[in-house]
Write a protein that binds this DNA or RNA. Structure first.
Lengths: 416, 416
DNA sequence: CGCGATTTGTTCAGCGGTTGAATTAAATGG
DNA sequence: CCATTTAATTCAACCGCTGAACAAATCGCG
């Protein structure tokens, strides 16, 4: 089935039934295997979780039978005693399909349970003149290629996530993607009849989400485990932010969080198309930077604009350097406000900002240290995204497999 | 024991052991009783939670034996069949003690399990010239009075929460409370030897927290049940914010979230004592409003300042009205940025802002509708705090009993 | 007033899943 | 080669939920 469905909440409000015991412990053990830095043994898991070795063995048997976990042959050498058999996430079980539609490219990637990117296809094309239906048809073609590659590897695609640069409503409806020219595009409807993933209980076949959200998830999963709080800023023509608080993506009351581009940085400043004045986007958005750098940016594909600016700045062009410094300062003012409010320890620059990070980070850091009250106590890290400019597709694919790790029963209960 | 302890996390990382089943279901059932708008029956709870009637009966028996739940005599009349016996939270079981130290008053209050404020004592006094040790000694006296009143009612104080206007670190250490003149004050240490509450497993005897955080919790519990996301802005000499996301208080990576007073609203504007420039506090803080209204505010007690401004504005004084309009606009600029980022549906004005809400709300709403991208889709409510200016103590006391509702085993396992 | 219908609450055997101890497995070291 | 050590499995016991049967309490209707 190829359709976006609302993730069924725990329905009966968290009541714990007999069977939930196993369900919860499967998740606990699997998460621990995923989070460990070296393959843990059953005994180690028992010690770590507080469960009995007997219980852990039973749970692990279920996980191995369901192809979620495998035994690592090279047991880690240690002192005396029977050697432990290390447990790792299976690399040949379920995998996630990550998709992205952006202004000047389509992308599809496959990520397996271990988080490894197994395939990554990018097709460059200016999609602004293309109708949503055509764009999605091309995307489906690319997705089919990725799927074929995954199947050749013996992987089972358990779900897909599509990143779009815009506001996404319930049911995969893209309310507004200004730079793509989309408005009220019903993605699941346009993709109907193109089954690309298996049906797995608890994993929606297709989730559509904002690119900034999925890119933030990608950063979260790529980094160390454990609850962390950071802001992932994606600079394209608009500026979006994915907000990760205590290790979970915060989506907002209605799912429309992250509109950092319209934080006022000069309340009486330049008018913005949103109706406000002095929004960050008018000072640190791609169009503003290009204009300040004296480049005729309107016609440039969005992606190459960032590369172009990075080239000029790398060559020492003073106009470009000044433009980036000003943009970084504006960004820093907005980010300082956010950090003051949310007490974050890290700010990640992604999307178009990733290649520009060498020139944007210094002014951002400067504004933060000037304006953030607690910066003296504990410093705030500002760094480029580790996944680079195209982390949204990878983040989406990873979020699919993460959902299986967080609730393995759905996968185990499927009819294989 | 009278000492602040770190809330012991679920230690073994969420592993579900045999006994956890009961532990979790006790919480599920109790939460449902607390959230219901009319006393539910055992059968109704079974239907709502998905548990069996047998299980619910067993769980409810435990709760009644532990004095957390009582049977409401007037059974709600309905059609045929054996009449149900309604279940309500017990009004004579555990209670929470809420304390507050502020610039010009001390407060103590007692809240029972149903959320009813049973006692509320306020002692006005300028505490700026008083040493932390003396201030806390006076507070302990007030707390002892409140405790005596609670004991007369047959209540058991299961924990205490202290609200302070400043940054609070681990272990109840007040790092900095500028308007009180406190710096690195070890509250639990200074209150040692004054046992005020019973020791209950899982409920720390004393939590020290920022007043804005506790006030936000008070607002959360006073409102309808269910996950909600809002910002609670407390305007005193400084400006603090409590952030509630999806029904839970967000404290930040290090517990220092909510510094909304230092969000930049005029990046090149007035210098601030934090080292930055153009912070919100310099435009909408109490000192800024008083100065703009032409009042010699430095000497006024903080609390009366707000009343004074409200009187003048109510009388139509044009200078005061202009000062409040300007402050409201600055506040609106900052809040609009926050709402854009976090997608909140409600903004609550509390503390010193509560009596000024009639004049502050309109400009705040105006800035939000101008600057918030999604305001057209779904409106943002701006309203004064329902608990008024002193919601922090009530919020703290309520948070104590809420913790029992969320994890009743701790209370039930005590040695009575 | 009496009896069936209906809904609530309790009792009890059954069972899934964890527990804890005993047992087996597989290595090291003297 | 055997004692020691640690890992993993087996199995009876037990905790707490399940489902169905049963008792309790009220209304409706004749």
């Amino acid at each position: 089935m190829w359709q976006c469905q609302v993730v069924t909440s725990a329905s009966t409000a968290g009541a714990v039934r007999q069977g939930s015991l196993r369900e919860l412990n499967l998740a606990v053990v699997l998460r621990r295997i995923a989070a460990a830095d070296r393959p843990p043994s059953r005994a180690g898991l028992a010690a770590g979780t507080g469960l009995t070795r007997a219980t852990v063995s039973a749970v692990v048997d279920d996980l191995i039978a369901g192809r979620l976990v495998a035994e690592a042959e090279p047991a880690p050498r240690t002192g005396a005693g029977r050697p432990a058999r290390g447990l790792v996430l299976a690399a040949d079980g379920p995998a996630g399909l990550g998709l992205e539609v952006n202004v000047d490219y389509l992308a599809a990637c496959v990520v397996d349970l271990t988080g490894t990117v197994r395939h990554h296809l990018v097709r460059r094309a200016d999609l602004r003149p293309v109708s949503p239906a055509d764009a999605l048809a091309r995307l489906a073609g690319l997705a089919a290629e990725a799927r074929a590659a995954a199947v050749r590897d013996g992987l089972t695609l358990a779900g897909a996530a599509l990143a779009v640069p815009g506001l996404v409503g319930d049911g995969g409806l893209v309310r507004l993607a200004p730079n793509l020219g989309w408005r009220d595009v019903d993605v699941p409807d346009l993709l109907a009849g193109r089954p690309l993933v298996e049906a797995v209980d608890g994993v929606p076949p297709l989730v559509v989400d904002n690119e900034a959200n999925l890119a933030a998830l990608g950063e979260l999963y790529a980094g160390p485990a454990g609850p962390r709080s950071f802001l992932h800023v994606t600079g394209e023509i608009g500026i979006g932010a994915g907000i990760v608080l205590d290790g979970a993506l915060y989506r907002g009351a209605r799912g429309w969080s992250g509109e950092i581009g319209h934080i006022p940085v000069q309340p009486q400043g330049r008018p913005c198309r949103c109706g406000g004045q002095g929004c960050l986007e008018r000072y640190a958005g791609q169009e503003a930077i290009l204009a300040a750098a004296g480049l005729p940016g309107a016609e440039l594909p969005a992606d190459t604009a960032a590369t172009r600016l990075a080239d000029l700045a790398g060559g020492g062009d003073p106009t470009t350097l000044a433009a980036l410094a000003d943009a970084g300062t504006a960004l820093g003012v907005a980010v300082a406000g956010v950090v003051n409010l949310l007490d974050l320890d890290t700010v990640v620059l992604g999307g178009g900002y990733a290649p520009l990070a060498p020139w944007l980070c210094p002014p951002v850091v400067a504004e933060i240290s000037r304006r953030v009250l607690t910066a003296a106590w504990s410093p705030v890290t500002v760094r480029p995204a580790v996944l680079g400019a195209q982390s949204a597709a990878v983040g989406g694919a990873t979020s699919v497999v993460r959902r299986i790790v967080d609730r393995p029963v759905g996968w185990l209960a499927r009819t294989p």
